[in-house]
Design a protein around this nucleic acid. Structure first.
Length: 210
DNA sequence: GACCAGGCACATC
DNA sequence: GATGTGCATGGT
C-alpha cells in the first residue's frame, strides 16, 4: 500500500491549514518558523483579539505593538520585521490585496514571495499551498527526517531535491499535497522523535513508494 | 535544566 | 558551496 494511504487511514484528514482567512495563513506561516504551533496559536489569537489580522490594520500598527502581541511565539522582533516586509510588498505591488497577489502564476508568485526578506522556501510554499491553493509540495524538517529515515534521500539533499521527489512521483492534486504534508508532520510529532524506525509507526518497516 | 519546535538571514571559511 | 550562529518563547 502506498505511504500516503497508510497515513491517511491511520490518522484521517488533518484539515490544514487551521485558519479563517488566507491572510491568517500567511501570518501563521511566518510566525511558525522554527516554532511550536501551540505558541503560534497564542500569537494569532492575540492579533485577532486586537483586530490586527487584516493587512491594512497590521500594516498601520507599530512594531512594538506587534512584537508585544506575538511574543509567545518567540523571535518576536525578527518575525515582526518579516510581517512588515511582506506587508510592504503586498501594498506596494498589489494594493494590499492578497487575491490580486495570488493571481500571479505559481512560478512568479513563488519568486515574489522569496524576494521578501524573511520568507524562505518552506514559508513560501506553505503560503502557495495553504493560502493561494496551488499544488506545490511543502518540505519541512519533518519531511526531511521522514525521507532520511526511509533512505529516500542523502544527508546533503537540498530543499528542491526533496520537493521534486514528491512532485515528480505524485499527481499534482491540491487536496493530496495538502493532506500529505500535514500527515507527515502529524507522523513526525507522534512517532518519529528518535532516530531508528520505531515498531509502532503506522508505516511499519515499509520503505516503499512515496 | 537541557532540549526541541511546521526557518531564515547573515558571517565566515 | 558548506558550515556555524543569532534569533526567543513555552512545553516536555
Amino acid at each position: 500500500m502506498q505511504v500516503f494511504e497508510k497515513l491517511y487511514r491511520y490518522f484521517g484528514p488533518q484539515y490544514w491549514w487551521p485558519a479563517d482567512t488566507a491572510f491568517e495563513v500567511v501570518v501563521g506561516a511566518i510566525l511558525t518558523q522554527n516554532t511550536a504551533w501551540a505558541n503560534v496559536e497564542k500569537a494569532i489569537s492575540s492579533l485577532k483579539k486586537n483586530k490586527l489580522l487584516k493587512p491594512a490594520r497590521l500594516r498601520s500598527s507599530d512594531v512594538r505593538t506587534i512584537a508585544r502581541l506575538i511574543r509567545p511565539c518567540g523571535y518576536y522582533n525578527i518575525k515582526t520585521a518579516r510581517l512588515k516586509n511582506f506587508l510592504e510588498v503586498l501594498f506596494k505591488d498589489f494594493k494590499g490585496n492578497l487575491r490580486l497577489m495570488f493571481s500571479l502564476n505559481v512560478t512568479a508568485l513563488r519568486q515574489r514571495l522569496l524576494e521578501v526578506k524573511g520568507i524562505g522556501p518552506e514559508t513560501a510554499d506553505s503560503i502557495l499551498l495553504y493560502a493561494a491553493k496551488r499544488p506545490v509540495f511543502v518540505v519541512d524538517a519533518y519531511t526531511r527526517r521522514f525521507l532520511l529515515r526511509h533512505k529516500l534521500i542523502s544527508q546533503k539533499a537540498g530543499y528542491r531535491q526533496m520537493q521534486s521527489l514528491f512532485e515528480e512521483n505524485l499527481p499534482h492534486r491540491l487536496r493530496l499535497f495538502n493532506e500529505y504534508h500535514a500527515l507527515i508532520v502529524r507522523l513526525g510529532k507522534e512517532f518519529c522523535r528518535k532516530e531508528p524506525i520505531c515498531d509502532i509507526c503506522p508505516l511499519g518497516k515499509d520503505r516503499g513508494g512515496e
